[in-house]
């Protein structure tokens, strides 16, 4: 498939936004049971939510460049019964709304104890909204992943690993950003966030490499034989029916050399995992008097995000569409 930068930025940016929200709520639930304490929770959660909302809006903005008629985008919520894309179109604004409300409630202090004031769990209403937000965040990851995983003849995508990788890579980058954010706002959370980032990134490494191995061994079910229905081992296309290009020759081929394709694969394998983790580790080790080297942590996030852009490029480029069987020879 031809990787579209609009979709690459949509999926990576909302991944960071969702992951950042999950990180904020992780901190709140830890704080609620007394694992950690946050000095200025009002500012920490509200600014964090604003940043998360910023990533989600940036992703939504990028997605409009994918559309031929962005002014009709509102129509795309219509077919949520059958279309994962439609479900994503609904889940994304819901996610934005919940992140906004979550941040606003923290900022305004709208946080009554809805279960009971005598309950030791404090901040119950925002916890409740946070749980809702967590459900929506995972739903959005599921929708985004299923857009690709549900197309059964794109065999590189048609696997639960697609959804799992969207969840893990998005969450990893969100926690990475949360580590950087905490270094500014709540340095005592940096170790907790950094540890989670390392754990999630390592799990993502396993599932992403698993997907790579699976796709390297894939046996494509369609062939020239099934495409034109002729039972012969020696079929060669002599003409695709046109001398110039068409939508079919542009949309389904990545159009780059095998060397570039491999370069992208190794780029993301290095940038997302070892490079980002080493920088994160150095950032975590840089603590002096409760202060961290934010430049190192920012670099770790930037390197991982750049790697995720390469990862998403590779994800699209790797998928071999069966229609390509019909478009092999100019003539």
């Amino acid at each position: 498939m031809h990787p579209a930068f609009s979709v690459i930025f949509l999926t990576t940016l909302i991944g960071v936004g969702q992951g950042l929200f999950l990180a904020l709520f992780t901190a709140q639930s830890y704080a609620a049971v007394g694992f950690i304490s946050i000095d200025n929770p009002r500012l920490f959660y509200s600014v964090g939510s604003l940043l998360s909302l910023g990533f989600l809006i940036a992703g939504l903005f990028a997605s409009f460049f994918h559309l031929g008629h962005p002014e009709r985008a509102w129509r795309s919520a219509a077919r949520w019964r059958t279309s994962w894309l439609s479900r994503e179109v609904i889940a994304l604004p819901v996610m934005m709304g919940i992140v906004f409300i979550y941040g606003l409630m923290h900022y305004m202090g709208w946080n009554p104890n809805i279960i009971g004031a005598s309950n030791p769990l404090q901040g119950q209403l925002t916890l409740f909204v946070g749980i809702l937000g967590t459900i929506v965040a995972f739903t959005l990851f599921l929708c985004t992943g299923m857009i690709y995983a549900c197309i059964k003849f794109l065999q590189e995508w048609h696997t639960p690993l697609t959804v799992i990788n969207y969840i893990l890579l998005g969450t990893a980058s969100g926690f990475m950003f949360a580590t950087l954010y905490a270094a500014y706002m709540a340095p005592n959370l940096v170790t907790m966030y950094g540890t989670w980032t390392i754990i999630i990134t390592l799990v993502a490494l396993v599932t992403r490499v698993w997907a790579l191995i699976r796709n390297a061994r894939i046996k494509h079910r369609s062939s020239l034989q099934t495409a034109i229905g002729v039972r012969h081992t020696g079929i060669v296309q002599k003409s695709m029916g046109m001398m110039g290009g068409s939508f079919n020759t542009r949309e389904y081929f990545h159009g780059t050399s095998p060397e570039f394709f491999n370069l992208m694969k190794w780029s993301f394998l290095v940038l997302v995992f070892p490079a980002a983790l080493i920088l994160l580790w150095l950032g975590l080790e840089s603590e002096t008097n409760g202060h961290y080297n934010t430049k190192l942590l920012a670099l770790a996030f930037a390197v991982q995000y750049a790697g995720l852009v390469a990862e998403r490029w590779f994800f699209f480029a790797q998928a071999k569409h069966p229609q390509n069987l019909y478009y092999q020879t100019v003539g």
């Binding site: 498939m1 994918h66 031929g68 008629h69 857009i147 197309i151 003849f153 068409s246 569409h321 229609q323």
Partner: peptide, 19 residues
């Protein structure tokens, strides 16, 4: 009604749709 998102063309194994 079409918004030109191309998703249907991805979902056609025959390449029968052109934007």
């Amino acid at each position: 009604k079409c918004i030109g998102c191309k998703y249907c063309s991805w979902a056609c194994p025959y390449g029968a749709r052109e934007l």
